[in-house]
Write a protein that binds this DNA or RNA. Structure first.
Lengths: 238, 238
DNA sequence: TTCCGTATGTTAGCCAGCTAACAAACAAAT
DNA sequence: ATTTGTTTGTTAGCTGGCTAACATACGGAA
């Protein structure tokens, strides 16, 4: 149990820690309820009370906001093992979600009432520590997306987004390869990068010509991490 | 000690929780080192190892990144009582900061080595729970900034940024007033919103003409929270 | 095969926000 | 009172990304 604690400051396998909390939860059904959702179904809607936390078992969830004009933006994509719908998603103490979460595919998850979850953490030190680490990683994750959005050049923005997605993906792979495959459409990239879909296609085309990514119709998007990274870090002074 | 735990799900005074962890730390000097910084001094630089966590006692800290072109963007402003330089600011397990933190004014803080801090949390359940809540709040905070950056209309973007800053500020005020005063320059707003300084000035001028904010040279910026909020939420369909 | 739905490629025209450059207003220091 | 430094106001181009619209390619269903 202490292994992760002492290993953490060395920053090994940070991303994998995100999925660790689930291992500390009782699996005898005493905490939370297992629920299933089919593709497209809503896990929560903007006006729902934010009094539950979820852990994704199988499938994939997207968390989105939409503004007054109906423009949708993708705030997060949840992978199996990750917690989501966290505590204190409280905008202005109304305790409402203000976001929408939908199953992207056939999905199974555990829903736990916040009260119960907090009570459980209170009794279980290791689970709490694990959960704390999970949040640290998520915070870093979110701050990197912030960093990405601060860049206004399309190529740099997309490049950073792809690197970000690749580093999350890499956590699940066993070996450290330079080519990471992502299953994501241009439309979804557009929603994550805050760009229009056509311009994402144009920008992706440029990156493809530079051999920084590979993709074709129907084939997954393959990101060459080292090349992309050196592209992002390169001085483009003029 | 349990008060905060049970109160949390009701989302009362969420923001104030951010500054709560400090109260749980031993003040006898047994944990961490007190350090002082003068205006402009660096707390850490991009290549420093990220093996400490900090708690701000007095003053103000800004955390920034700068890209290859030298463009600086403001990632966060730290207020007294808040922790910063969190665990796992580990980009690619190098364990480096990749950001720069500077004192904006005369500043005093506590620096604690991560190893020691984690060991302390491990022994002190209430401190850990408090710290966990702090992170939840910070995560929500960061996700709101994400949301703000996803909007490309300048007025909406600045409006959302001001609301965000105001809601953090409001935590320190005793009463719930509609007018919140902020001490921030157009240049800093530009760095937080990912916009150019001139266009921030233009946009702020528009908001001022709409009576959503008040400000003059040398006077602090006063944000009318309800008006701004209704402006942001209003349908601007055409 | 054919049809349909969805993802990607591409272009023309427009416009919001950028850069650059300078002016003005004030504060603090001399 | 001057000087210096800092912040804000403002404008004239310019450009990058947007919208809209359509073309193309592919997968799966019928």
């Amino acid at each position: 149990m202490l292994k992760e604690v002492t290993r953490f400051p060395d920053h090994e396998g940070c991303e994998t820690l995100t999925k660790l909390t689930l291992d500390y939860l009782p699996r005898d059904g005493s905490l939370g309820t297992v629920r299933r959702y089919r593709r497209g179904m809503a896990v929560w809607r903007p006006d729902d009370r934010a009094d539950s936390i979820y852990f994704l078992l199988h499938g994939q969830i997207t968390v989105k906001t939409s503004d007054a004009r109906g423009r949708e933006t993708n705030l997060r994509v949840i992978e199996p093992g990750e917690p989501f719908g966290e505590l204190c998603v409280c905008a202005e103490k109304t305790g409402l979600r203000e976001t929408a979460a939908h199953a992207r595919v056939e999905t199974e998850l555990i829903e736990i009432k916040l009260q119960q979850f907090i009570a459980y953490l209170h009794k279980n030190r290791d689970a709490m520590m694990s959960f704390l680490f999970t949040f640290c990683v998520r915070l870093t994750d979110t701050e990197r997306r912030l960093d990405m959005l601060m860049h206004r050049d399309a190529q740099e923005r997309i490049a950073r987004l792809l690197l970000h997605l690749a580093s999350r993906q890499r956590a699940t792979s066993t070996q450290r390869v330079s080519d990471i495959a992502l299953q994501i459409s241009h439309d979804e990239l557009a929603q994550m990068a805050g760009m229009s879909r056509p311009h994402v296609s144009v920008t992706m085309g440029k990156l493809r010509r530079r051999k920084l990514v590979r993709y074709q119709r129907g084939r997954p998007l393959v990101v060459n991490v080292p090349s992309l990274k050196s592209y992002v870090l390169a001085e483009r002074s003029e």
